[in-house]
Design a binder for these strands. Sequence first.
DNA 1: TAGATTGTTAATCGATTAACAATC
DNA 2: TAGATTGTTAATCGATTAACAATC
Lengths: 222, 222
Amino acid sequence: MLREGGYAVASDARVQEKASIPDIVIGRLPVYLRTLRLLADDGREVTSSQELGEHLGISSAQIRKDLSHFGEFGKQGTGYNIDFLCQQLQKILNVDRIWPVILVGAGSLGTAIANYQEFESSGFRIVAVMDEDPQKIGKPIGQGLQIGDFADLGRSVADSGAQIAVMAVPAHAAQRVANELVEAGLNSILCYAPITLSAPSHVRVEYIDPVVHFQHMTYYLR
Amino acid sequence: MLREGGYAVASDARVQEKASIPDIVIGRLPVYLRTLRLLADDGREVTSSQELGEHLGISSAQIRKDLSHFGEFGKQGTGYNIDFLCQQLQKILNVDRIWPVILVGAGSLGTAIANYQEFESSGFRIVAVMDEDPQKIGKPIGQGLQIGDFADLGRSVADSGAQIAVMAVPAHAAQRVANELVEAGLNSILCYAPITLSAPSHVRVEYIDPVVHFQHMTYYLR
DNA sequence: TAGATTGTTAATCGATTAACAATC
DNA sequence: TAGATTGTTAATCGATTAACAATC
């Protein structure tokens, strides 16, 4: 299966219970969660599959069906308690905790990612930023971090227990960096480089490439 | 239809001829193109659906089927000429030209986007960067650009003929900014803010949100 | 009670794949 | 010619939707 910015190589070991839930359903849950939290911020307490569907441009049936894979979270006649459903989705997605993330690449994009304040509230914390450039190593970045030497990746992984990496490196370096990440034991990679990586099947790779989105859009333009 | 970073509200007017080609197929073409160009950079001249499929982790049948919507680009027994197929895909995607793009938001992420060198070779040029912050307006950014006042959006659109915008603004400002973009006549928006925008159906919106990818990945983690 | 909305079923719709004749 | 690979068909597989009984 190919996904990009939404495409990613899927397929990996799952626990029995989860084996049958389609990956495409899992992919929508974070969007549901994000929307519910915005509603909660608005002071809303209850919503319905219809309201959610209208917000997201999808059918209410799809939302109910998606949620039904995991349990019964609503009340007939009333809808869903927003806080409760957020909590449930966070549990399902395993973001009822904070995951350490290692960022590779301290260029302009890496710096932007390191500066981004909202990861923490979503379940993620960037615990290390690494680069190969001796000019950059040692410099401060993000919230009280210092750029580390990519050669010390193994130590960073061991110290942090990170399973997830973000790659903000040039395309020509990406496969080599990815190999090192896999070697170091990471199993989840979010790749901003415009290249499809080769990785063992136990490693999940997802991609973010604005060009893919632009080119998708221009198909419909004149 | 919901897509994110791969999800996006689809559905819009298309010319007759294209009406029947699934959007999901269009979404894969940029990835094919990207891969073919990497092969070309490697000095390769010919490839096959099987080789491409192995690179991308998808079936050769899917690649052949996808391409068959647009014509016959290969030779039995030989495969595809890489340069030729690149050219064809560029035509199909309408990136055999340069599209002007307006970037809104000159924060850390906006700056990274403005600095990105590779848009031009993919069919895009950032022609204006706009922000509301008087502290930022007038400052240089990207390749010889100056941050413009978002209030002058209308003029920028008129001057450049841009149809595409990228939003790198905080979530709380995103809907307001999007409204202005639509008002100014833009019809394609790539949104980095973690929020699903409301927009008229003639406006195509796609999203990039790393948190959505992270949370998708953590579902499979322990 | 009347109205609203869930969770679920079955039908529909659409996408992917396997297979193969055509042919380079 | 023999081997390889395309483009296409038909079958399979999977996802979405409409509809509705259950029930708050």
